[in-house]
């Protein structure tokens, strides 16, 4: 127990240091400029007012991007963990199961003006993405489920097929739209990028991710029971079918909101729960917070890598996460000894 708290404390320090690094990379602002801005912005006394240019670059451009990376990475991390528990297989992940691409189809439909803005724009796009993701995962789940059990092979194949279908829908919508920047928009939705981050974009993903984390933590014990299998969980009094529905809705809601802000970023939800389990074990009360921190950290570093590799361009961060994630996926697929039938 004590070691778990040490781990959380260590991750927190690591996250803070990484954020400082993330807001320091980019145009050269001169010695100490970044720290002056952070000191000024984070202390309540006004202090020495920093250079306004550095202030805008660090606080209004880089900081929301770093925070969005934390939120999206953390959110994908916990949803990955929840999906893996749902299907009792370590290969599950929102991107692989088609939730992300369903969400991009919904979000791009709205973004390009094909759907009416029901509420404010800040809420309608996540809503459209949520519905797209929910539709996609529902289809995948129904295809994979038989009367007695959930076929993992069918689940993965249906997920990949659904991801391809929804990706094509997104591309078709974007190419047939009047958007003058079609290719860039397609890249954004299909590969994911954090470049649209602003402070005003952050509340929706942050609130929904926090709500997702709280919900999953509240379900920690039933989730643990799920690891015993449907029968075992039922034996412990867990309403298994209801729990599965809740998990699917939470996964679609969080993924949809994150996709609306950053496009479909893959494989975070695959790598992170795995890496974390070997440190904190499988109990969800510890697994979920650790996945949140580790996912946040992973995406922040992936975005740093994307910015460092091609400094003068905007490399979609999803390319980096896929470069890390696909080999990981293949190794898992090869190593796993359980039945894929």
């Amino acid at each position: 127990m004590k070691s778990a708290w040490l781990l959380v404390a260590g991750l927190t320090v690591l996250v803070l240091l990484s954020v400082v690094l993330a807001v320091s990379v980019g145009e050269d602002l001169g010695r100490g400029a970044v720290l002056r801005v952070l000191r000024h912005r984070l202390s309540f006394d006004a202090g020495a007012v920093p250079d306004p240019t550095a202030d805008r670059i660090v606080w209004l451009l880089r900081m929301p991007r770093a925070v969005l990376a934390l939120v999206v990475g953390g959110g994908l991390g916990i949803i990955g963990a929840a999906m893996q528990t749902l299907v009792r297989n370590p290969l599950a992940e929102p991107y692989i199961l088609g939730i992300s691409s369903g969400a991009t189809a919904g979000a791009s439909l709205f973004y390009l003006g094909f759907l009416p803005p029901l509420l404010s724009k800040a809420l309608s796009m996540p809503l459209a993405a949520f519905l797209g993701g929910l539709l996609s995962i529902t289809i995948v789940y129904l295809v994979a489920r038989s009367a007695t059990r959930l076929s993992v092979a069918r689940l993965l194949l249906a997920g990949v097929a659904m991801a391809a279908l929804m990706g094509s829908v997104t591309s078709f919508i974007t190419f047939s739209s009047p958007d003058p920047d079609k290719l860039r928009a397609v890249l954004f939705w299909l590969l994911g990028s954090l470049h649209r981050a602003t402070w005003s974009l952050l509340p929706a993903p942050a609130v929904v991710t926090a709500a997702g984390l709280v919900t999953l933590l509240a379900l920690a014990r039933p989730l643990d029971a799920m690891l015993l299998g449907d029968e075992g969980a039922r034996g412990l009094g867990v309403p298994v079918e209801a729990l599965k529905r809740i998990l699917i809705i939470v996964a679609a809601l969080v993924t949809g909101t994150l996709v609306a802000a950053s496009g479909a970023i893959g494989f975070v939800g695959l790598i992170v729960p795995h890496a974390v389990r070997s440190f904190v074990g499988v109990t969800h009360r510890r697994l979920l917070p650790a996945c949140f921190f580790a996912g946040a950290l992973f995406l922040l570093w992936a975005d740093l890598a994307a910015r460092a590799l091609l400094p003068s361009q905007e490399l979609p961060v999803g390319i980096i996460t896929a470069l890390c994630g696909v080999p990981f996926f293949l190794v898992l697929l090869r190593r796993s000894t359980y039945d894929h039938g």
């Binding site: 145009e27 050269d28 240019t53 860039r184 003068s312 361009q313 905007e314």
Partner: peptide, 16 residues
């Protein structure tokens, strides 16, 4: 002197 021939500038490039 931008290193690429057809860049898409970042906001901070212009600010700096």
């Amino acid at each position: 002197s931008h290193e690429t021939t057809a860049p898409i500038l970042k906001d901070e490039y212009v600010l700096a």
